[in-house]
Design a protein around this nucleic acid. Structure first.
Lengths: 133, 133
DNA sequence: ATGCACCCTATAGTCACTATAGGGTCAAGG
DNA sequence: CCTTGACCCTATAGTGACTATAGGGTGCAT
C-alpha cells in the first residue's frame, strides 16, 4: 500500500494551493519531502498532519512566525506549555483590539454614509465633505 | 509671506512620515510639487488639503486605489455622487464582514485558551490539542 | 503519438509602506 | 571659516503571505 501523496493531493486534502505548499516548504514550515524518480515531491502522513495544523492556525489568524513557534513547541512534549499559552493569549488580545478598532470604524462610516443618498452631485455630497477634514 | 512647506513640515502637519509622503507622490496620489533651488520639494495649501484627505481615508481603512477614485470624483463637482456612495458602502460592508469574522475567531480562541492554565507540559496542553484538527 | 493534467524551478508582482546606503543643504555655535 | 546636526535628495531592497508568470518535464489515456 502506497501512502505517499503528490503535492496536488496534499493540497486538495488540506484546502491549500499547490504553490502555497511549496511556499511553506521554502519558508521552513513544512519539512522537505523525499522525491520520486521523476523529481516529484512525495508526502507522508506526518506532512499531512503538520500541514493541517498550519492551516488551522492560519485560519485562526496566527502569523507564520507564530505558527513556527507553535510547531516547535508542540514537538517538545516535556516542556512547560506556558509559552504556548502566552502566544495564544497575546494573539487573542490583538484580535480583540482589531475588533474594537474596526467596530469604531464601521460606526463612523455608517454615520458618514447615512448623510448622503447618492442622488445629488459630488458638490453636495456629504461623504466627500465628511472625508475632508 | 511664504506659505510653502518643506516635506518635513507637511508630514508633521498631517501626521504622515516623510517617506510616506514621497511614496504617495510616486504612487500618483499627491501631485508633484515645485522644487526650490536646492531641489527641495515645496508644498502649498492644496497639497496640505489633499494629503489630509488621503490620511483621513486611510484612517477609515480605504485602500489607496479607493482613495484615488475618491480623489478623482471629489474634483468633478458636477458629476453625480452615486459612485462615491457605492465605494463607501462597499467598504462598510467589507469592514462589517471583517468584524463578524474576527468576532467569531476571537470566540473560538477564547474557548481554546480557557482549556489550558499554562501550568502543565506541552504533552497535556489543550491549546496544541485544539489546534491539531 | 498526442493531448491534457499534473509536476518542476526561478523570478517577479501584490499592498502600503519601511529601511538602508550614500549622498547634498542649511542654520547655529565655536 | 569650520563643524555639527537636522533636515533634504535618490535609488534600491525588504516586509508578509502569498500569487502569477515563464519555460520546461512527467504520466496516463486515447
Amino acid at each position: 500500500m502506497d501512502s505517499r501523496l503528490t503535492i496536488g493531493e496534499l493540497a486538495k486534502e488540506t484546502g491549500t494551493k499547490v504553490v502555497t505548499v511549496r511556499y511553506y516548504e521554502q519558508a521552513g514550515l513544512l519539512p522537505v519531502p523525499p522525491r520520486t524518480a521523476a523529481n516529484y515531491r512525495a508526502y507522508g502522513a506526518d506532512h499531512l498532519h503538520r500541514l493541517r495544523f498550519i492551516r488551522r492556525c492560519r485560519d485562526l489568524g496566527f502569523t507564520l512566525d507564530q505558527v513556527r513557534d507553535l510547531l516547535r513547541m508542540s514537538s517538545q512534549e516535556d516542556q512547560p506549555c506556558a509559552e504556548v499559552n502566552r502566544i495564544s493569549g497575546e494573539h487573542l488580545t490583538e484580535i480583540e483590539r482589531k475588533v474594537a478598532d474596526l467596530t469604531r470604524l464601521a460606526d463612523e462610516l455608517r454615520r458618514i454614509n447615512a448623510r448622503c443618498q447618492g442622488s445629488g452631485t459630488v458638490a453636495d455630497c456629504r461623504i466627500i465633505e465628511a472625508l475632508s477634514p
